[in-house]
Design a protein around this nucleic acid. Sequence first.
RNA 1: GGCCACGUGGCGGAGUGGUUACGCGCCGGUCUGCAAAACCGUUUACUCGGGUUCGAGUCCCGACGUGGCCUCCA
Length: 472
Amino acid sequence: MALRLYDTLTKEKRDFAPLDPSNVRMYVCGPTVYDFAHIGNARPVIVFDVLFRLLRQLYGESHVTYVRNITDVDDKINDRAARDFPGLPLNEAIRKVTEQTEKQFQDDVTALGCLAPTVQPRATEHIGEMREIIDRLVEGGFAYVAEDHVLFSPQAMNAANTILPRYGSLANRSLDEMIAGARVDVAPYKRDATDFVLWKPSKPGEPSWPSPAGIATQGRPGWHIECSAMAWKHLGETFDIHGGGIDLVFPHHENEAAQSCCAFHTDRMATTWMHNGFLQVEGEKMSKSVGNFVTIRQLLADWPGEVLRLNMLKTHYRSPIDWTLNGLEESAKTLDDWYWVAADATGDRAAKTVVDALSDDLNTPQMIAALHSLRNKAASGSDQDRSAFAASLRMIGLLSESAATWNGRKQQASDVDAAQVNALIDARTAARARKDFKESDRIRDELAAMGIAIKDGKDADGKPVTTWEIAR
RNA sequence: GGCCACGUGGCGGAGUGGUUACGCGCCGGUCUGCAAAACCGUUUACUCGGGUUCGAGUCCCGACGUGGCCUCCA
């Protein structure tokens, strides 16, 4: 089945045809590193990791380039640095904040089972590319210098009347609408309310670099331009897929596309624009004021990364997702069962049903239904069936541990004394053998009170065997 | 105010014109000393009101509800 993807720009699901099948190129907006990533930040990371894995499967591992940037220059970073390290020179404090936050981010997404992207460029290492794009935009008449700022003019872009896209086409709104809705604090140096900053002067102590467009004083980049620069450097003037959260459609991606298309005289920056939906927590918008702001790190303290990953994939990426404790418990239960059934089977051929489900615009709920079906076959089937099941799980970043490690993790997480549990189980087995069921039931209740669930079975010789696990 | 998305059974969540989604739970059965686990089976749905159609969860119009964006929040 051919890969089909939904494109935000044309609002349709289309067959995916890479510009160059020997090098499929995807850019996804990564974090601005100033604080712990929250669970909403994890959604695009996981969703596009699944797409990365699918593309590798379809086109070959060495034929996919996935770029996810680290934005390490931003006002929010500067504010955080000044707040957290008031004693340090600003630039030193900023380095501390960005290095620390990036490390946290990398640790978090690794725990979520995400592969490392092919390239993870940093904004501050692409200032030269940003300057070059800005220079081109000024030369082309799409941007202008005012009071040491460089501003991009959407009006100029739309007046150019070339192959360029219409500004606003991605976000599906007209310039007139934007002017009408423009906020009141329009900077005096802007020619039009809709102009946005490509470059701005740095205040003393702030990070600064030589400015483009002949500006004498040092400055720093505005938002948006860093992604145009990094995508250009690592993927070229045009590429296949550009992804991120739905909130980035406007202004971020609209402006990125405007900059890149005007700088390189193309009609499309990316062939396909993909955006994941928003996340709510227990039916409410996640916000610090409501008190339901939850970081990836906090969740990882209570749940294996794979539980968070599976929970995220239960909902189609474009739909809103409601992140609930109930959902996490269900995901954990499912994974417990899958680890049990897969039983450390090896294999590297993911099932066609799973690949096909993903090929339909990443229909992960359909994929999960396919996995349940494979699971049922594997539970009563051959080694081959188990291999297909296990390989499918691994393809999407699950089943990365052995069954023993997976089960042991739950015991570790609680403070249960295994020796004590085993002693009680032995006592119960003895009681059952002498048909003292009152005593055996008492012990079972005692274990239950400790949070231990027991399972009775028989071994190959028909002798009673009791296993146990931590009840979640 | 403008633009947009979503609304499916007890819960989660696919499906975009015509046969069972799927999972969890519930209930029943097998098994068990009794349970649990496992396995088998059953059950419940398309926010509301119009319209198009032989036929609508699926298309159109309207209402209601939830959420998002409207210049630096994934």
